[in-house]
């Protein structure tokens, strides 16, 4: 692995090939906000709050710092007017779902986001996927899943697995940026409908 030299907010930064802008920035103490990022999980790139401005191959683009690999000569700016504006509107869209999330409200203060800009949505999940990915990648239980797509995408617990695995775990609860409540809500709801027994009882004369 060779060393890469790039520039972040005017600072020269040396990073290993294959690392991301986010990792490189953190290594020199430049803070970039994240919501769907987690040290134990594969970078995902869903929330886009880590959007930064980067000059890639002569073009200035907005890129997700958590996914964009470092390159020699890359020039990154983490707080420009354009970056702040993007983060503001991303937050406003999320706040329509989760107006009471402390984590979102703190960021809203920084970027001047108005939590009431868009009409409230009924689903208070921002679909960062931390619960789904943690349960899959770290716990390997797959008790939480994404379902549907597009505007209908949501998370659900798989009842058969959840009833077995979740009671003693619940490690996903504190990960949820919109409050653990919603995860608990889904869990409760899922647990209310008991799973169908996998082996139906015998109708004959045997003891089963």
């Amino acid at each position: 692995m060779s060393e890469i030299v790039l520039q972040i907010d005017g600072k020269e930064v040396t990073a290993q090939e294959g690392t991301t802008i986010l990792e490189a920035a953190r290594s020199v103490g430049v803070a970039i906000p994240t919501l769907c990022d987690h040290e134990k999980l594969i970078p995902y790139g869903a929330c886009r709050i880590c959007t930064v401005e980067a000059d890639v191959h002569g073009k200035t683009n907005l890129v997700a710092a958590c996914l964009q690999p470092v390159e020699n000569g890359l020039v990154v700016r983490t707080r420009t007017e354009q970056v702040d504006q993007a983060r503001k509107i991303i937050l406003e869209q999320m706040l329509a779902h989760a107006p009471d999330s402390e984590q979102l409200l703190e960021l809203a203060q920084v970027y001047g986001a108005n939590k009431d800009r868009f009409a409230k949505e009924s689903n208070f999940c921002i679909l960062c996927g931390l619960c789904v990915r943690y349960c899959d990648e770290v716990k390997k239980k797959n008790a939480v899943a994404f379902i549907e797509r597009g505007a209908k995408r949501e998370i659900v617990f798989i009842p058969d697995i959840a009833i077995r695995e979740c009671w003693d775990c619940k490690e996903c609860f504190p990960l949820c940026p919109t409050s653990a409540l919603q995860a608990a809500y889904y869990l409760t709801e899922a647990l209310m409908s008991p799973p169908v027994p996998s082996t139906p009882s015998c109708k004959g004369n045997c003891s089963k």
Binding site: A46, C47, R149, K152
Partner: peptide, 13 residues
């Protein structure tokens, strides 16, 4: 809105 995969925020929302 029906055909987006729904993964990333700016597209979906």
């Amino acid at each position: 809105s029906n055909e987006s995969c729904g993964k990333c925020n700016p597209c979906r929302e």
